[in-house]
Design a protein around this nucleic acid. Structure first.
Length: 761
RNA sequence: GCGCGGUUAGCUCAGUUGGUAGAGCAUCCCCUUGACGUGGGGAGGGUCACAGGUUCGAAUCCUGUAUCGCGCACCA
């Protein structure tokens, strides 16, 4: 027996060495796997690219652990495994983080630095962040193919983005439209619906009349926007207002002339406020929709900085909050204010900057999800479809299955509520919109209602993968929503749009599985389905495994402000990656949130040690034992024990096939500790010490049988545990007899690594 | 408003197709000095949120209720 087993297991000393030997073997790359893999089924998965905004947390560690279990299990069952790493540039998140830092340290804004310098700074930051992330992924023991690493903003991915944009543009799916969008005055950019977080705040609901001559009272929490009202809406069945429908009124409201038409719309609730609603098309998404249906004019009264563009002297130029006071004052003075009440109200905040979102009418790029186009590839080839239909069908048809399946409902629900996706961002870090403009009529833009739409018509627009030739072209200043590029991830990482390269990897797409957190189901999963079904006519992956949130020991969300972050690298240094992995896996079913505390990690460090000692006992008790004899001489009792373990392994295999890693891991833990160690090793002590006979004489059959049983069981146990605890099992494997000694140790008999050995049955 | 999930031992949670309630931690008792004290054995502790139903049989399936949490929409 090697002396190494006389000391307790030392993960720190072992893990880096083992990871090196894996990398040197080349087996992370499916093309370099041993020959017998040549006919193996393909197994493909992408790493959900972590944002380069920071470093990994316990949630990422859980993700890495689950995915590595999937990949290692697949490899051990003979599959050609391709796991692709990468990182996400995370546009807004990264830029706002770097901007914040620069402003804090140097007191400079992005405009002080300029586009080029800011991008240079962001690249430096992203690089540093990337390096830490890569180190963390290695430390977790991930058997991921580094030779295929990608970045959502690198050259290849940029080509993929431009190619898809152009295709969508030509299909009329991408359009430039003047619409009310979510504007973040703090970040000075548009954001999508998904980048908004809601916060409940106390606010006042004001009820008033626009003027003494207008007979309908309305309620609002935002009186300052009423300067931009162009209609009053009531429910069509509301008898109280029926006589006014179609009537028009004019007045001067807080210094601003307004003209109101009374319209009816079923989206008005009769019971809220006065039952009538002031329609502000420019500053409310729903009012904007109403204005489109009713052909109402649009009037912007708040600008990009959240300041008033109209009104009397005490309003014009003021921020919205001050203007609100001023408007209320004016209402009071005019005797128009009827009621003030306190209500709870959800306000929309930009997720990244915390700015209060201001709905504003802007000219932006959109992906139209309800726009019909003719599908070219896949099951709908030749048919007229919409993106929404494709996304709906992917899950509805079962082409993509979700684990657990309850998330399929969530997904469908989300798709049904889907609106056009605003993809342009007024930030610098990201994929630049591949569109160029040339003025054909140099008429100045007029900030007057109705004239906005004309603006784009005076421009010649060119969209292509490469810039246009000729004079006077200017590229669109905007960049694309980060999800536009991460939506392409399953195929942009496989060489697409280079047909030659992509065809080589054809069998790896759709990916076998996608593993990610349920919290990004709508953002990322749905967008990958959108992109893949549109571009390739096939789903991006056959299954989606969704893991839950990792919370702290008290069940609180991990957050910076609470300071309750458990640093994966610290825990790995203290207890080893194997312990961290298992503690995150066991007892946590798919889709369920979990709690992680140091105690739990510690408990599995003890398990690693137990495993080490089991090995020590078995190796010392079986020295010189001829493994090749096999089980033909097993006692009945040992045969039964072998059957027992086989049955457990069969059960565990079924768990692995059905993504029940939390059960499989626990069963192995229970067997190893409470069956093998507590019972079988204890009873083996007597058996192993009994059969000692004089030199040269054969051992007792009972002892030989037991020795063989113990070794056989240890070998199978180590194999089955490998996906869960890759480091310690690989280390033990190197010292097991009968399966070929370690190459470094003996020089002869080159043994294959455990990572490419067969899953036990 | 629409939808999803939880409710099982003091705590944290398993319980896969329905078959006499499980683990870890905690508590208490005992054992153990050549695999491991990072150990072993044992005990106490639960009307499986509640009420109906299906069934020979329900923690598990169905209906409803309560309660906690979450998502989406609305939030004039």
């Amino acid at each position: 027996m090697n002396d190494i087993f006389l000391k307790p297991y030392n993960p720190v000393e072992t893990e880096d060495r083992i990871y090196d030997s894996w990398e040197k073997s080349g087996y992370f790359d499916y093309e370099k796997l041993p020959k017998r893999y040549a006919d193996g089924q393909p197994f493909s998965i992408v790493l959900p690219p972590p944002n380069v905004t920071g470093t990994l947390h316990m949630g990422s560690a859980l993700m890495l652990a689950i995915e590595d279990i999937m990949v290692r299990y697949a490899r051990m069952t003979g599959k050609r495994t391709m796991w692709i790493p990468g990182t996400d540039h995370a546009a807004i998140a990264t830029q706002s983080k770097v901007e914040k830092e620069i402003s804090k340290k140097e007191g400079k804004s992005r405009h002080d630095l300029g586009r080029e310098e800011l991008l240079r700074r962001i690249d430096i930051f992203a690089k540093e962040s990337h390096d830490v992330i890569v180190k963390q992924v290695r430390k977790m023991g991930c058997s991921i193919d580094w030779s295929r690493e990608a970045f959502t903003l690198d050259e290849k991915r940029n080509l993929a983005v431009r190619t898809v944009f152009k295709k969508m543009f030509d299909d009329g799916i991408i359009y430039r439209g003047f619409r009310v969008v979510n504007w973040d005055p703090k970040g000075q950019t548009t954001i999508s619906d998904d980048e908004i977080v809601y916060e409940t705040r106390k606010t006042k609901l004001y009820t008033f009349k626009y003027s003494k001559d207008i007979p309908i009272s309305i309620s609002t929490t935002r009186p300052e926007t009423k300067l931009g009202d162009t209609a009053i809406a009531v429910h069509p069945d509301d008898a109280r207002f029926a006589k006014y429908i179609g009537k028009e009124f004019s007045t001067v409201f807080a210094g601003e002339p307004i003209h109101l038409k009374v319209i009816s719309d079923i989206s008005v609730e009769k019971d809220f406020g006065t039952g009538a609603l002031g329609v502000t098309p420019a500053h409310s998404a729903i009012d904007w929709e109403m204005s489109q249906k009713n052909n109402l004019p649009l009037k912007q009264v708040i600008n990009e900085y959240g300041k008033m563009m109209v009104g009397n002297d005490s309003i014009m130029g003021k921020k919205t909050a001050e203007a609100r006071e001023a408007v209320v004052e004016w209402l009071r003075a005019e005797g128009l204010l009827e009621k003030e009440e306190d209500i709870e109200h959800n306000i929309a905040l930009a997720e990244r900057t915390g700015g209060v979102v201001e709905p504003l009418p802007k000219l932006q790029w959109f992906v139209g999800v309800n726009k019909k186009f003719r599908a070219q590839k896949g099951k709908f080839a030749g048919k007229e479809v919409t993106l929404k239909e494709l996304m709906h069908d992917a899950v509805e048809s079962g082409d993509t299955k979700m684990i657990p399946d309850r998330f399929e409902k969530t997904y469908i629900h989300w798709i049904d509520n889907l609106r056009d996706w605003c993809i342009s961002r007024q930030i610098w870090y990201g994929h630049r919109v591949p569109v160029w403009y040339r003025e054909v009529e140099s008429e100045k833009l007029k900030e007057e209602s109705g004239k906005w739409k004309a603006e784009s018509e005076k421009l010649e627009i060119y969209c292509d993968i490469n810039p246009p030739k000729g004079e006077g072209w200017k590229q669109d200043e905007d960049t694309l929503d980060t999800w536009f590029s991460s939506g392409l991830w399953t195929f942009s990482t496989l060489g697409w749009p280079d047909e030659k390269e992509f065809s080589k990897y054809k069998e790896f797409h759709p990916n076998t599985i996608l593993e990610t957190g349920w919290d990004i189901l709508p953002f990322w999963v749905a967008r990958m389905i959108l992109m893949s079904t549109y571009v390739l006519g096939e789903v991006p992956f056959k299954s989606v495994y969704l893991h839950g949130l990792v919370r702290d020991a008290q069940g609180r969300k991990i957050s910076k402000s609470l300071g309750n972050n458990v640093e994966p690298l610290d825990m790995i240094a203290k207890y080893g990656a194997d312990a961290v992995r298992v503690s995150l896996i066991i007892g946590v079913g798919p889709g369920n949130d979990s709690k992680i505390g140091e105690d739990k990690i510690k408990a599995y460090k003890l398990f690693a040690n137990k495993l080490w000692n089991i090995t020590r006992f078995i190796l010392s008790g079986t020295e010189g034992c001829n493994y090749d004899v096999g089980f033909d001489k097993s006692t009945e009792k040992d045969l039964a024990l072998k059957e027992e373990f086989s049955a457990i392994l069969k059960d565990i295999t079924s768990d692995m096939e059905n993504f029940r890693y939390y059960l499989a891991g626990d069963k192995l833990y229970q067997y190893a500790w409470h069956r093998l160690a507590d019972v079988l090793l204890e009873e083996s002590k007597a058996i192993l010490s009994s059969g000692i006979i004089a030199n040269g004489a054969p051992e007792s059959p009972e002892k030989t049988s037991r020795q063989q049983f113990l070794l056989d069981t240890l070998i199978k146990l180590v194999r089955a545990l490998h996906p869960f605890m890759p480091y310690i099992t690989e280390e033990i494997w190197a010292y097991l007899p009968g399966v070929g000694g370690s190459a470094e140790k003996s020089g002869k008999d080159v043994k294959e690594l455990l990572m490419v050995s067969e899953w036990p049955l």
